[in-house]
Design a protein around this nucleic acid. Structure first.
Lengths: 181, 181
DNA sequence: AATGAATGTCAACAAGTGTTGACATTCATA
DNA sequence: TATGAATGTCAACACTTGTTGACATTCATT
């Protein structure tokens, strides 16, 4: 960890790395403090308690300013990149993983959903227009991300040039454009 | 808990209820023993240790004998029912939830994936035929399940008669049948 | 009734948890 | 240089965790 940073900053970064990798309840404060090269008691001073530290790792993590503002093919590629679907690394931090890992804890789960889930949904609704279609679009994204990162389906393989990738992009297009007849 | 059952049986059922609801590391053995009306030490006698108890809850949990053996519209409905997509209850046990909640723990995650994820995948591959198409099909299922149960997207709503339900079924059909041109 | 296996009870262990208060040090400002 | 705020250090608290060994009870079989 970079020693030039503030201790508070180092604590926050170490916390984010740990929490996003293994979930809220599976990370101890002493472990975070050790990774940050700081003392546990400083967490209380800077963040109040464990939940406050966790909340701090959620700030300004979902930025839609660089994303497409209109519905189109570039939206598909941008979202694929945003949710790290193309990456096979299970430790690659993803807001989806974070939500799933903390879904069992009512308090923490609500915190994460409020901070990111709703931001993500409202972005897609704004860009796509129809809320139902936006939800369907996000469902396909979720499924692809989960299939690769958590379930590790063999058949999905690298998402670069396989048949799965081509079909997945078609599914995303279908979620954007299809009209039920 | 039914007092007519064996203590071992009661422990196993209480363990499954707890583990499947909140994940492996978030459940304590004393809590399971209390729910089963038994003593903690009996867990050691019957299951060895915590991981042994968890493993016991995975036995015979994925049964494909009652599922369709051919690719078709009934496969869509059967799978929707199997993964409890139609249920909005976050406590409704689902193998998908179980996998996701334990994805952060290498040992436990591998155990669950080995017991169920691969069975699920091989079933779909056998019925659907093409492995890539089976993976795509499961991705859509995963996404729908996660969107409702963990992310709780507002727009997905009850999956009974909404526009989302109709479109989701179309997506599943597309995953089964579409040929990329 | 006696034997032995099966089953249940209790207390404790070492380690880890989040949290806290008292104290020491550093450092910028008056 | 002196003051006070900011920052860092240390030890301990009450509690929970998985695990374990010694002991008591129940129960079927001889």
């Amino acid at each position: 960890m970079d020693p030039d940073l503030t201790t508070k900053e180092r604590l926050q970064r170490a916390a984010k790395a740990a929490f996003w990798a293994r979930g809220y309840s599976n990370v101890g404060l002493r472990e975070i403090a050790r990774a940050a090269g700081a003392d546990v008691a400083l967490i209380k001073r800077y963040f109040g308690d464990k939940l406050g530290l966790f909340s701090a790792t959620l700030d300004r993590a979902f930025d839609t300013s660089a994303l497409p503002q209109t519905n189109g093919a570039d939206l598909v590629e941008a979202v694929v990149h945003l949710f790290s679907i193309a990456s096979r690394d299970p430790n690659d931090p993803s807001i989806i993983r974070l939500i799933l890992m903390n879904a069992h804890d009512a308090e923490v789960g609500a915190l994460v959903r409020a901070a990111h889930g709703q931001q993500m949904q409202s972005y897609l609704e704004r860009v796509i227009g129809d809320p139902t279609r936006a939800a369907l679009f996000m469902s396909v994204i979720l499924g692809a991300s989960v299939a690769e990162k958590s379930l590790r389906l063999q058949a999905t393989a690298p998402l670069g040039s396989s048949g799965y990738a081509a079909e997945l992009r078609y599914m995303l297009q279908a979620a954007l454009a299809y009209k039920v007849t």
